[in-house]
């Protein structure tokens, strides 16, 4: 097989890899489904609460049959039904700092698909501390964003959002865009974990479905970043930049 495919070696690397996906709703659901179907060896899901009817416009791992029951366990069961060779772990709540750190420490990548910036920035911190890649998938209405980051060699999420943006309790979602962003997050993770393909390191992908526009934007690292600038010295930055 030539370029443009997931090689056999790459598939074996996937089999030996672990991915931690926090929130498995509109974006994390499709992302974890694609990781499972691709054969990532261990997929760790974190999502609290019960499935409710309004979730079903985007949460592809759920169905009418699972309403009013915990999301994480039923989503994990569904993923196991899709690929018996994958180990799926379910965390039925939002991990706190210590738990997120422990989960990141035994993962090879973190996919952040959470509704709050507080949780996204926490996941960014633990990925940076564990020195593993971090993918941030987000959406609003028909707009999606994706960032593929590795603190120490690219900007981290705290560089991009030095001030925590305000929380929005209710937000519009078109499932088609959240699924698209989630699938693209999985694609980037598969490339990272398999070593196949060119990863969009350090870039922001904007996918504006409403205005039919897409763009890749290289993200600027903040030398004063409260997260990554305190974890990595300049020597490490320079060394790692050569790897990207």
């Amino acid at each position: 097989m030539g370029a443009g495919v997931l090689s056999e070696e790459g598939q074996l690397r996937l089999k030996g890899a672990s991915a931690f996906v926090s929130r498995t709703g509109g974006m994390g659901g499709p992302a974890s489904l694609m990781l499972t179907m691709a054969g990532v060896g261990r997929v760790i899901l974190a999502h609290g609460g019960d499935l409710i009817s309004p979730d079903l416009n985007r949460q592809v791992l759920g169905s009418e049959r699972g309403l009013e029951t915990p999301r994480a366990t039923q989503f994990a069961d569904y993923l196991r039904s899709m690929n018996r060779f994958v180990t799926v772990e379910a965390i039925d709540h939002e991990p706190n700092d210590a738990e997120a750190m422990e989960l990141a420490a035994r993962s090879d990548i973190v996919l952040s698909c959470a509704p709050t910036f507080e949780e996204r920035l926490r996941l960014n911190r633990v990925a940076a501390a564990a020195r593993i890649p971090f993918i941030d998938a987000a959406q609003w209405g028909m707009m999606g964003t994706l960032m593929v980051l590795r603190a120490g060699s690219t900007a981290c999420l705290q560089c991009v959002y030095p001030t925590q943006p305000p929380f929005e309790e209710l937000f519009p979602v078109v499932g088609a865009i959240s699924s698209a962003v989630g699938s693209l997050a999985a694609l980037e993770a598969i490339k990272v974990l398999s070593g196949c393909g060119r990863v969009a390191w350090g870039q922001l992908l904007t996918l504006d479905g409403f205005q039919a526009q897409t763009a890749f934007v290289p993200l600027r690292r903040d030398p004063q970043c409260r997260c990554c600038s305190t974890m990595f010295n300049d020597v490490e930055f320079n060394d790692m930049e050569e790897c990207v």
Partner: peptide
């Protein structure tokens, strides 16, 4: 098309005629 930071954290930016300014309000979703 070049990222300069955020509105509350960026180096001084001078604008010129014909510039294209894009502002992306942060999205999270879930």
């Amino acid at each position: 098309g070049t990222h300069f930071g955020s509105l509350d954290n960026h180096d001084p930016i001078s604008l010129s005629d014909g510039d294209e300014l894009t502002l992306i309000a942060p999205v999270a979703g879930g």
